[in-house]
């Protein structure tokens, strides 16, 4: 699966369009890690556990989007965008969406 956040896949030609695909996930850390982050927040600095949370949430959202695109028979997703929101303290929602397309290599390049 090729992912891009531009309108095309460079070096490839779009031959089919399957419309919007999306994936979302809401994830939270456990209370102990939340407490650790709370302490870290008093002294300042990077909140590693929340960064990890964001990374795994993003990966999960992307993999769900990829699954949807695969079901449609696409082999690439173009114009991928991420949206995030903070539903409640300590939880992160990541929403990934894009256009599922079928691409094939340009001939003669």
């Amino acid at each position: 699966m090729i992912l891009t956040n531009i309108e095309t896949v460079p070096g490839m030609k779009i031959v089919g369009n399957f419309g919007l695909v999306s994936g979302s996930t809401v994830r939270a850390k456990n209370a102990i890690l939340d407490m650790g982050a709370g302490l870290k927040n008093v002294v300042g600095g990077e909140l590693k556990s929340y960064t990890d949370l964001l990374t795994t949430a993003r990966q999960e959202a992307v993999s769900r989007m990829e699954q949807q695109a695969q079901m449609l028979g696409a082999n690439a997703i173009v114009n991928v965008r991420f949206a995030t929101s903070a539903i409640t303290a300590g939880a992160a929602e990541v929403y990934a969406y894009g256009t599922a397309v079928k691409v094939q290599p340009l001939t003669g390049v």
């Binding site: 992912l3 070096g11 982050a37 600095g45 929340y50 964001l54």
Partner: peptide
Amino acid sequence: TIPDKKIVNVRMVCGEAVIGADY
């Protein structure tokens, strides 16, 4: 992309960071 250049690989890259302010 720059035209006439051969494209070997295309992929999406991401980076995250969460920074807290101190008290």
